[in-house]
Amino acid sequence: MLIEKFDNTILLFIKNNMHFYLLDKLMIFFTMLGNDGRLWIVIGLVLLVTKKYRKEGLLLLISICIGAILGEGIIKHLVCRNRPFTHYPGIKLLISKPKGYSFPSGHTTAAFTSAYVLSKSFRKYTVVFFSIAIAIAFSRLYLYVHYPTDVIGGVVLGIISAKIGIYIFNKVNIKKLRSEVKDFYHS
């Protein structure tokens, strides 16, 4: 199949030509940054508790949740794609074996959702946000836990999730929502 050949050619190229000690450590670091979307969730929470950037934090967290629900909650269980290391039992992983299915990459989804949302509010850091997202996505290939098409799917899903989050956020009257929450707690 053409997709399998594409995926395997890229993974084998990375495995055979790019691995060395320092890059191993760097890729483990970037993958750990993306674990469970923690980096992005922490950024969202910091923004949320900062009065000036509360809206940005809320938008980021909403968008990350949309990506997680769509990717981890729905798509992975519909596609049921095994991870690359399951097809090559001799592969020695540099990280613990991830659980769950491969498509789409959750790390990549969260990273690109976040980079897209954050770059809309903090334009001068766009290159930084997308550089981190790309490094996280590449780390998943380098560490042999995702296929290239899983990462591509994560990029697409991440941007779609960000756009859905922005759309929903713009449609909801934040002042009305705040008022309702305030009334709920004071009644």
Rank of each mutant, 00 (worst) to 15 (best):
Asp24Phe: 11
Leu33Met: 15
Arg178Thr: 12
Glu56Asp: 11
Leu48Gln: 06
Met1Ser: 14
Lys52Glu: 15
Glu4Val: 03
Leu39Ala: 04
Met18Tyr: 09
Lys182Tyr: 14
Ile41Ala: 09
Ser179Thr: 14
Phe112Thr: 01
Lys176Gln: 14
Lys176Asp: 15
Ser131Met: 10
Phe112Pro: 02
Val181Thr: 12
Ile134Lys: 00
Ser114Leu: 10
Tyr53Pro: 05
Val128Pro: 06
Asp183Leu: 12
Leu177Gly: 05
Leu45His: 06
Arg81Phe: 06
His77Gln: 12
Phe30Gln: 00
Ser131His: 06
Tyr185Ala: 07
Leu59Asn: 06
Cys80Pro: 01
Phe184Asp: 11
Leu48Asn: 06
Asn35Lys: 10
Ser96Trp: 08
Ser121Arg: 11
Ile3Ser: 00
Tyr21Glu: 13
Ile166Ala: 10
Val181Arg: 11
Lys15Trp: 11
Ala110Ile: 00
Ser139Thr: 00
Val46Asn: 08
Thr113Asn: 03
Gly106Thr: 02
Ala111Leu: 06
Trp40Ile: 01
Ala137Gln: 04
Leu177Lys: 07
Ile43Cys: 10
Leu61Phe: 08
Met27Arg: 04
Val127Cys: 10
Lys176Trp: 12
Phe169Pro: 04
Ser161Leu: 10
Phe138Ile: 02
Ala110Met: 08
Asn17His: 15
Ser187Pro: 06
Tyr116Thr: 14
Leu143Gly: 00
Ile164Met: 13
Ile62Trp: 09
Arg83Ile: 02
Thr86Asn: 08
Leu93Cys: 11
Gly73Trp: 08
Ala162Met: 03
Phe30Asn: 00
Phe103Val: 00
His107Phe: 02
Leu141Cys: 03
Ser179Ala: 09
Ile43Leu: 14
Ile159Cys: 06
Gly37Cys: 02
Val181Lys: 10
Leu39Trp: 05
Cys65Ser: 14
Ser114Gly: 10
Val151Trp: 05
Ile91Thr: 14
Asn35Thr: 05
